[in-house]
Design a protein around this nucleic acid. Structure first.
Lengths: 356, 356
DNA sequence: GTGAAAGCGCTAACAA
DNA sequence: TTGTTAGCGCTTTCAC
């Protein structure tokens, strides 16, 4: 080990003191030496709530400023067993709705004194390696807005790493979750469709392994059944714009009665669907065809679309997720909690009275 | 310090050995003890390229697997002076084009054995605190796709933290940059406009402090001048959809001849502009009004828009940024480099012969 | 309130 | 090839 400036402060063995050579980062020892105090005093100055005299604090801070000293968070993490790092797992592709949540989560984490270690997860193997990476980096917690198997979750549990799920959860396993339940709003939206004389609907769903998709499909079918609206066609997309467009084509090619309304599991597909209806099939939306969907992403309200959709309160959900993860980091044995937010209907302009 | 299982392996002072109590994370000492080897042997097994016998490796790996041991990256970072962390600075709001780059960068970093520590930066003060945070966490490097003052950059330089700028740089200071220069493509696009008989253009620019904006404005004016197209109106937006719509209104209210083409500094504003033209002003695009812009974000090609725009090769740029940052981490004294990518015209369908 | 000393879990120089 | 040893920069008892 080349340059070891310290270990025991005074008596100063001048021959061994490395005088902050160029480029070397100042350590608490350097500050202590300059201020003429012990290293532990320096440490205390940078720990909020330590008992320290004003005079001491002043001296130390002056020296610290002079040396541009900032405590080394890595070293601190090593001893406190707290990295202040939170792994944030998102799936990069699909769904342009996650960026909004991601940025909000990052900001909130920052405000809570935590840093976001970002991981993109596209599939199960990714999740596997990401979990190992996060573990190696001693993350204090995980916020997962991406796919994860139950085994992977249990591994994290076993390792006592708190996890908060964002818009997904395991029904048969206790876990901490922030979630949006749009069922009430869907109910009223579907009732509205019934009033508008819609009798036949088509459904464009998302990836079957995706929980948000499954839930939305389930509640849509329930609501439609209750309102006496029949599903005449159903097709599966992958949440993307293109798959929404393709979905409409597939519906048109299916036998059975023409639907008067298309229900898309997310906005992105609804936009694809709407564009396809207008520019390829020459249909007017909403006059010839109504469309509703879920998410309420920003672009769904651009005037080309003005989707009638059910918005998730992304901001509050992100805030809640961060609150929950920092609570769980502080109190690991705390019981699980599920925070469910309601959706909100954005009236938009993509529904109208059914063509008869 | 409650549980200290080690310091010196054999002779095993059984009274002091803590037998991996529940929940305690296995350390290299635990593995060493179980495998009956020295702790440093364990360390070597996890360092690629260490000289170690097959037999030893096998024994150690078996024990490691049994204890689910993974090296502690934080502790490793403390001694190697390499955190393997790279700060990624993005500006959250505005511009939905950054998410694409962000996810790509994260993936590439991951492939290079580096982790992305994500920071959102909205203004100069944010940048200030973010830089301090990054410094505390001993990041090996910074990829900045957000605002940063020259002083802030110099601070990072002084601290010997390599920085790669994404789509921005300081002209009067050496720095490492990945950049997209769309001027050639713009030249040909403007020539095309001239052929289409456009004589009067309006410009919707972005925030003046933004470099990409300034560059695009400059080269647009140059190109227009060379092609003999006059700028009859100019207005400033903030890169957002809404400001694009407002920009068009502002242009319409300005005195002077009606422009036949609007040039927007990014796609998002162009989309707002197009929607405003169509749905509020009742204009047909491109028949009544042509629009061109910059970026080539995914949604610019949705059939509602089909913008004629100049795409940035985000994927290659992200890849380059990561390559450059890991090079600079490895070789800090290496000279600066600027990698400039060309744009690519997406023909789209938002330009036509000028109305006369 | 302050300082001395003991590590957090790891790597790496050195010796064997 | 393997083990011993000395720290990386910090926090935290424990005396004083």
């Amino acid at each position: 080990m080349a340059n070891n400036p310290h270990k025991k402060n005074p008596p100063e063995d001048e021959s061994k003191v490395i005088p902050l050579i160029k480029g070397r980062r100042a350590t608490s020892y350097d500050v202590a030496r300059l201020a003429g105090v012990s290293q532990s005093a320096v440490s205390r100055c940078f720990k909020p709530g330590s008992s320290i005299s004003g005079k001491m604090r002043e001296r130390v801070m002056k020296a610290a400023k002079e040396l541009e000293y900032q405590p080394n968070a890595i070293a601190r993490g090593l001893i406190t067993q707290r990295s202040n790092l939170v792994a944030v797992l998102v799936s990069g592709r699909l769904n342009l709705y996650y960026p909004e949540a991601l940025f909000k989560i990052t900001e909130e984490l920052s405000a809570a004194g935590l840093r976001a270690l970002l991981f993109t997860v596209e599939n199960e193997e990714d999740a596997e390696t990401v979990i190992e990476q996060a573990w190696q980096f001693q993350v204090d917690g995980v916020i997962s807005a991406s796919h994860m198997t139950q085994e992977q979750y249990q591994l994290l549990e076993k390792r006592k790493i708190p996890v908060v799920f964002f818009n997904r959860y395991f029904a048969d396993h206790p876990n901490t979750v922030v979630y949006c339940d749009p069922s009430e709003q869907l109910e009223s939206l579907v009732a509205q469709l019934a009033e508008l004389r819609h009798k036949k609907a088509a459904l464009i769903s998302g990836p079957v392994e995706n929980m948000v998709n499954r839930e939305r499909v389930r509640m849509t079918k329930d609501a439609l059944a209750r309102s006496g609206i029949q599903i005449t066609a159903e097709t599966q997309g992958d949440f993307s714009y293109e798959s929404g467009a393709a979905g409409l084509q597939s519906i048109k090619q299916q036998d059975g009665d023409e639907p008067t309304v298309i229900i898309c599991v997310n906005d992105m597909m609804a936009m694809g669907c709407m564009d396809e209806a207008r520019s390829v099939l020459g249909l007017k939306v909403p006059e010839d065809l109504s469309i509703i969907s879920f998410d309420g992403i920003g672009m769904s309200q651009f005037s080309s679309y003005e989707l009638t959709t059910i918005r998730q309160p992304i901001g509050r959900m992100s805030e809640a997720a961060v609150r929950m993860i920092s609570d769980r980091v502080e109190h690991p044995e705390q019981s699980h909690e599920k925070r469910v937010f309601e959706g909100a209907v954005i009236p938009g302009g993509s529904i109208a009275r059914a063509r008869t």
